[in-house]
C-alpha cells in the first residue's frame, strides 16, 4: 500500500474522438498527482500506436510493455519505467508491435490489481474509438476524465463514451456505484467563445450533464511540451501548466476557481481598426 490504508483509485482518461488531448492530459494529470506526493502509475492502452512514452520523454527506455507482462514474458515491476521528472511516477508502455487483441481483459485485470497494491492512483490512457483497447482502458475504472473539445463531433463522441461507461464498465455490469465522471474541456479558446464561434464550457456542460473538472486553454506550449518530451504541466508559467495544476487540485478535493475561461475584452476601437 502506498499511503495509509486508502484503496487505490483507477482513473481512465477517455474521449471517444482522437486528437482531443487524452495523452497530453494523461501525462500532465498523472504527473500532477505525483507532484502532490501520490504514488502514481500511468498506463498506455493504445496497443499498436503507443505514444505516451514520447509525450513523457521515456521512449528510449522502453524495454518491456503491457503485452509482455500479460503474456508472462516479464514481471510487472520490470516493465514499469520511472519518470524522469517525478520520483513517484511510473509509466507502463503499450506494445508497439502486437495485435490489440492480445490485451485480454483478464490480463489487464491482473495488472491493475497488482498495481493497486503499491500505487495510490492508476491512470489509464485510453486509445481513441470504442473498440477493444478503449474498452479495456475504461472497464476497471473508478473514475473517468472525459476529455472534450468545444466542437460538435467531440461532444457527441464524449456523450457516447458516457453511455458506454454507464452501461458496460465493470462497475455498471456488477451493479456497484457508477463510475465517477469528470468533464475536462481542452483546447478552449475564450476569445472565439466570446465571438460566438465556439461552444462555451457552459454549453458543453449543459449538453453532457456531468461535473466540470477543468478547462485547458488552447496553447502553443502543448506542442513545445510534446516536442521535448516534457508533460505540459512542467512548463513553468504557461497557462496550460497552471490549468492542469488546478485540475489536479480539484480532483484532490480542493476548491479552486475556474481560470482561463474568459477572454480579454476587445474594445470598439480594436473592432473598428482590425485585429482579432
Amino acid at each position: 500500500m502506498g499511503t495509509d490504508n486508502k484503496v487505490a483509485t483507477v482513473i481512465v482518461v477517455t474521449s471517444g474522438k482522437g486528437g482531443v488531448g487524452k495523452t497530453t492530459t494523461s501525462a500532465s494529470f498523472s504527473s500532477g498527482l505525483a507532484l502532490r506526493g501520490n504514488k502514481t502509475v500511468v498506463i498506455d492502452f493504445d496497443v499498436g500506436l503507443r505514444n505516451l512514452d514520447l509525450i513523457m520523454g521515456c521512449e528510449r527506455r522502453v524495454v518491456f510493455d503491457i503485452i509482455n507482462v500479460i503474456n508472462g514474458d516479464a514481471a510487472l515491476p520490470r516493465a514499469l519505467i520511472k519518470d524522469k521528472h517525478c520520483d513517484n511516477l511510473f509509466v507502463l508502455p503499450a506494445s508497439q508491435t502486437r495485435d490489440k487483441d492480445a490485451l485480454s481483459l483478464e490480463g489487464v485485470e491482473r495488472i491493475i490489481n497488482e498495481l493497486k497494491e503499491t500505487f495510490d492512483y492508476v491512470v489509464c490512457d485510453s486509445p481513441a474509438g470504442i473498440e477493444h483497447g478503449a474498452f479495456s482502458a475504461m472497464y476497471f475504472a473508478d473514475e473517468a476524465l472525459v476529455v472534450t473539445n468545444p466542437e460538435v463531433s467531440s461532444v457527441r463522441d464524449s456523450d457516447r463514451i458516457l453511455g458506454i461507461l454507464a452501461a458496460k464498465s465493470k462497475r455498471a455490469v456488477e451493479g456497484l456505484d457508477p463510475v465517477k465522471e469528470h468533464l475536462l474541456v481542452t483546447r478552449y479558446h475564450p476569445g472565439r467563445v466570446a465571438a460566438g464561434e465556439m461552444l462555451s464550457v457552459d454549453d458543453i456542460q449543459e449538453i453532457l450533464r456531468i461535473p466540470l473538472l477543468g478547462v485547458i486553454p488552447e496553447s502553443e506550449s502543448v506542442l513545445q511540451a510534446s516536442n521535448s518530451g516534457t508533460p505540459a504541466i512542467h512548463l513553468d508559467k504557461s497557462d496550460v501548466a497552471e490549468a492542469y495544476k488546478d485540475v489536479v487540485a480539484r480532483f484532490m478535493g480542493e476548491d479552486v476557481p475556474m481560470r482561463f475561461t474568459t477572454a480579454e475584452k476587445v474594445g470598439l476601437f480594436k473592432r473598428l481598426f482590425g485585429g482579432r
Binding site: 460538435v152 467563445v193 465571438a195 464561434e197 473592432r271 473598428l272 481598426f273
Partner: peptide, 29 residues
Amino acid sequence: NLLDYLRGPDKKTAVVAKERLQIILAHER
C-alpha cells in the same frame, strides 16, 4: 468594420452547434 459593428451579429455558429447537438443527442440517447 463599422457596418458589421452596427449591423449586429448573425446567428452565431456556436448557437447552431449547441442546437444541433441537443437534437442529435436526445435522439441517440
